[in-house]
């Protein structure tokens, strides 16, 4: 693993160049208190003063709405045309929890049936991570096996250091990127970057306002599907899709056709949410998850149990977005703690 150093000025110049050569996606201050990952034309549009973006950047690998193919039924014939492959992209400024979110999505879109749309974007997107410099009050990545300076999964990891930035190439793709733009960097001869990152990690580790212990929670849920506790949570749930849409690991989607003239159209997919009542409702009316209780339970079991059953990975990375945004304070940290307590009394 090789490390490099760059000055603050060079970071801006480098990002300007990247924006010219790639689709550069980076955090942008959209409104007061709203940070979104968006394509930028240069460094000037980027806002680095953020802890976590409002919506997770997963949408740049798994877009909220993605056209899959065009169809035409004109003349009684069917013609299917592929959509244009996306341009190579770089996502700059991914926080470690969001990188882990992508690693959590990878096995879903791989497996027996690799998803070509996801794979295509994933392969054409270079992930540049950015170590956190502070911890927000809803962050709990360390409780979910991550850390604010744990950039595993990124191609390049950037750390703010005294007088500039340190870069670590974590993959050959990251190394190639450094190589291509080598004028902006100098090799880190004295392990400054790693030392700075480790020091930062230690400093931030003590700043988490709340940690949770997931030990035994999955095993308890394995044995306890029916819990009155879910009624309690579901009663206040609004059944909106906030938690699922801002989440870096939620991957549910719907597929739909759009053909305004009835002959030519597009088949797309878009995010859907297991919190919505019609998500599982069948055409005949039967709904296997008929009330908010089943739906809320499904979401938390997906995060804490099902994803581990299927992929041996936690379904939650501890980014804290759902904690911040839930209008009725459904707080997964509290749920984990409550389940621990229920388990102890069981």
């Amino acid at each position: 693993m090789k490390a490099y150093i760059m000055t603050g000025d060079n970071l801006g110049a480098w990002l300007d160049t990247l924006a010219r050569d790639f689709t550069l996606i980076a955090p942008v201050k959209e409104e007061e208190n709203v940070i979104l990952f968006k394509p930028v034309k240069g460094f000037a549009e980027i806002n680095l003063n953020y802890t976590n973006s409002t919506v997770s950047p997963k949408g740049w690998i798994f877009p909220q709405t993605e056209e899959m193919f065009y169809f035409s039924t004109a003349g009684g014939q069917i013609n299917l045309t592929d959509v244009q492959a996306p341009r190579p992209a770089i996502i700059f400024g991914l926080r470690p929890c969001d990188i882990k979110g992508i690693l959590t999505l990878d096995p879903v879109f791989n497996g027996a049936y690799p998803d070509p749309y996801y794979q295509n974007r994933r392969e054409n997107t270079i992930l540049v991570g950015l170590c956190c410099t502070r911890v927000e009050r809803h962050c709990f990545c360390t409780s979910m096996g991550g850390g604010p300076t744990d950039g595993r999964g990124a191609d390049l990891l950037v750390t703010e250091i005294d007088g500039g930035y340190g870069l670590e190439a974590l993959t050959s793709r990251g190394e190639e990127l450094i190589h291509r733009y080598q004028g902006y960097f100098t090799p880190d001869q004295h392990s400054r970057v790693i030392l700075a990152r480790e020091e930062l990690g230690q400093k931030l580790a003590g700043q988490f306002t709340r940690t949770v212990d997931t030990t035994g929670v999955k095993e308890f849920l394995d044995q306890n599907f029916e819990l009155p506790y879910w009624d309690e949570i579901a009663r206040r749930c609004l059944g909106c899709g906030i938690c699922t849409y801002i989440c870096p690991t939620c991957h549910c989607f719907d597929i739909f056709d759009f053909a305004p003239d009835g002959e030519r159209g597009v088949r797309s997919r878009c995010w859907d949410s297991c919190m919505f009542s019609h998500f599982t409702r069948m055409a005949g009316g039967h709904n296997p998850r008929p009330t908010q209780k089943e739906r809320v339970r499904n979401r938390f079991l997906h995060k804490l149990k099902y994803h581990r059953d299927r992929y041996d990975l936690d379904g939650c990375v501890g980014c804290g977005r759902c904690v911040t945004k839930c209008p009725v304070n459904i707080d997964i940290r509290q749920i984990i703690a409550d389940l621990q307590e229920v388990a102890q009394h069981a």
Binding site: L238, C240, G241, I242, T244
Partner: peptide, 8 residues
């Protein structure tokens, strides 16, 4: 995001 929280 069309999360429908405003409606709900």
């Amino acid at each position: 995001l069309r999360c429908y929280a405003c409606r709900n």
